[in-house]
Each structure stands twice: as structure tokens, then as C-alpha cells.
Design a protein around this nucleic acid. Sequence first.
DNA 1: AAGTGGTCTAGACCACGTG
DNA 2: ACGTGGTCTAGACCACTTA
Lengths: 253, 253
Amino acid sequence: MEKKLSGPDETETRTGEPIGFKPLYAQVRERLMRRLVDGDWTPGMLLPSEMELARQLNVSQGTVRKALDSMTADNLLLRRQGRGTYVAEPEESRMLFQFFRLSPDQGSPSFPDSRVLSTGKAKPTRTEIASLKLEKTDEVFRIERIRSLSGQPILIETITLPAGRFPDFDHLTIIPNNVYRLYSERWGITIGSAEERLKAISASSRDAVKLGCHIGEPLLLISRVARDLEDRPVELRWSRCISRDIHYAVNLR
Amino acid sequence: MEKKLSGPDETETRTGEPIGFKPLYAQVRERLMRRLVDGDWTPGMLLPSEMELARQLNVSQGTVRKALDSMTADNLLLRRQGRGTYVAEPEESRMLFQFFRLSPDQGSPSFPDSRVLSTGKAKPTRTEIASLKLEKTDEVFRIERIRSLSGQPILIETITLPAGRFPDFDHLTIIPNNVYRLYSERWGITIGSAEERLKAISASSRDAVKLGCHIGEPLLLISRVARDLEDRPVELRWSRCISRDIHYAVNLR
DNA sequence: AAGTGGTCTAGACCACGTG
DNA sequence: ACGTGGTCTAGACCACTTA
């Protein structure tokens, strides 16, 4: 049995905390989030039932449900009627919709293959320091790779990782296609959100060679900052993408 | 008092409808949506209280709340504690975040000015027919305009509207900056969602002249299909945007 | 003081999946 | 048959707004 949460109970009314009040379900969510962050609950794992969690946390089932529903809405949990509630896994099929917005103009989206061009440790640039909130003395790993859809190279991307959060990254022999699964399995880092900025640029001579396009051809520049469950920036990614037969899709609601 | 909704009541269990069952709150949402679609409730209007709606629809307050919450999540309603529930209005401040994703690289986002270049009625292109689900015999209105941020032209856009849904569009003397408010006030059409596709293209000579950039300069091409509350396509928009000091921002969760 | 939405609880039943 | 999440209800109290 865990410590009782603050909030209405037998002896104290909610009025006891006039400022900074958080609803019970938000406190429950924070507790459950902590278990994810601390790695008590790992991807794929079955959570205790709503009733069991309600008993553990001394709240009603409805309050637990509200917290679980909100985490499910953020793609952190997966609920299946009759089975239970699971920690979401970074499988390709989900990532394809959540974090990969490029689709062929005709046909359905699919996950591109990757070929690593280079890896290495380096001092961060000013942009990397700002985006990843680093100190000037920190170091970073950089990976450059080409990604292809059905044999055709479509983009070249540079991934920057803070060395401090990815110990022994340079000991890796292979870098898998789905790096978010790697971050999760190897370092327990779950990517929870990302912010992307798009611009149109001209292909440099180097990009043109690697991508097999003309110098000056317009490319979609996508710069992404990915964040962990505690909202700390974890990855910076610059993608230069040929958009002749491919587009970046966004749904606005 | 309205007709009773299907679902559990005194005499009949939910098992009575084995196929195509919809939860009560979804049926309630559909009923409330209909009032928006039919114009019974117009932007800015105060809705009846939860208790009043629950009485009208013969369901509990909690079920009404679930429907109202879901519509609020879709930016269709606005709930204010102590005041009531209001129909959302297409004000600039909200549209800026919901449907306008361009921001200056430095500084905060703001709504660009517009200058109309041309308007007219025409036969739709194949693309317009496909995007707006038109018949070949239908007609469309087209507006072309330049949009500027602090005096600098940043994009040129072509808006296509199905003539059938915007009667007397060509009688308009001026076209306001915020056309979604115009659609709402003049024709009762509320834009509820939109899908955008982005590509990188080269500025044509015409674009270059209008935007004051070089021919061949990379531009962000944004094609948008906007849909009404019943999910029917209502507007097609092609924007060609200078992205030198501006980016398109997306949050992924 | 009265009315609104926001939170929390408790209990009932349903739909789904597994044994 | 049993346990899970999903839905629905009823009632209590809290926080905010207006009068």
C-alpha cells in the first residue's frame, strides 16, 4: 500500500491547499508516469488492473481510469477490453503514424530502410547546444544516414545525441533502422513527444551526390527535437528530403 | 422534451441491439453536432447547462459531459467554469494555433495581412475535382492572394471553393483576411478539420515576381483540404511560401 | 446566494478475452 | 465462469462567476 495522496479524505477538505491545487487524477497520473520514467514499468508490460491500482493509491476506480485514459491519449499506454492495460511499445507500425509524417504521393506509407554513412563523437555546435540544452563542455554523438523507400534514396539525415545520456553509444556495432526502439531497450529512454520545423532549401553538392539529385534541387528540410517522458530534449535530427514523389502530411484539428 | 435515445432504460437492455451499437455518449454527441450543423447553435452562443441538456435528452449529466468534453477537445466548444459552455468562434487568436502553422524563426507567430490579386469563377481542374469531390459539371470560385508579415510578402496562395456551397460569393465587395470567419458568418459553414501536404518546390517566374524572390528559389508548397463539421471537403488551398526566415511548425505526440 | 462546470466516489451492468 | 476495461448512473462536494 502506497502513501495516501493529498486530496479529500475523511479528515481534511480540499480547501486545505488553497494554492497550486492539482486534481487527484493529475496526481495519480504523475505517480504512474514516475513508474514509467523510473523503469518500474517497461514497454510491453501488463499493468495492474484499475481496481488494483485504485486500492494501491487509495482512490476510486474512476479516478484511476481518468489518469489511465489521459496517458492512453498520449500514446503511452494501450488498453484492451478484456485483456488489460499495457505499456506502449515503440513498434514500427505505431511510429509510422506518430513520428514519421512522410508518405508517397501514390500508395500507402511505409518505413524507409537506412544505411549509415558515418558516426562519431564531437563537440556540439551552437545549434545543438541550444536545441538539446547542453553545456558547452558536453559532447555529442552524430550519426549520418541515408534512408530509402523501395530502393530509392529519399532523404539524408543527421542525428545528434547528448553523449551523457547515451553511454557507450560508440560501442554499438550496428545501428538499427528504428532507433527509438534502441533508445528504449538499451538506455530506457522513451520518446514521448517531438517538435518538427520545416523549411524548403536547395540541395548542396554533397546532398546531391548522396541522394542522386541535382544540385540546387528543392529539398524539404525537417529539423526535429525529440523529448523524453519528462520533456527533456533527447535527440536532434536534421533531414533533407527529396519531395518530388513524396509529401509531408499533417492533420489539423 | 426530445425523443428518448436508444440504450439501456427501464424496459430494454442494451443486448437488444447486437450489431452497430454506439455508446450513449456518442449518440448524444451526434445529436449535439446536428444542432451545430443545422445552425440551431451558432458561434459564440451559450449552450443550455449540462443538467438542462441531460433532462432534454433523458440521460445522466455524466453522459452529456462526456459528449461535451469530446466536442471541446475538437475545438468545437468552449467551456468556462462558472459561466457555461459556448460554441467556439473562429477568432484569429485561435485559428493562429489551430490552422496556421507558419512562424517566424525569431519572434512569436502572428496572422499575416492579405492582398487579393484576382478572383473569378471557373471550371474545376482534375485536382480540384478530386480534392473537393466535385462533379465535372460543377463550378468553382478561385481567389489568389499575397500574404505579408510585417510588410514582407511571405506567401502566395490560391483558394478554391465549390460554387454550389458558396452562393453569391462573386457578389462580395471585399474578402477579409480571416476567410474562415467569413465562411461561418455568411454561409454557416464551420471548418472543423484540415489536412495539409507539404513539398519543396522551385519558385516559378510568376511566383518570383509576386513574392520578390529569385526564380528557382526553394519554396514550401502547402496544399490544404479543409473540411466542414460533416467532414465534407469545402476548401482547397495551395500556398507557396518563402521559408528563408519562416518555418512550418508541427508538434508530434 | 445561486448557478455553472470540475472533481470524486460508489455501484451497476455490458462487451470482450481467456481458461 | 471469471476478470478486464467500457459505459452509465446518481449523488456529493469544490471552484469559479455573476448577481
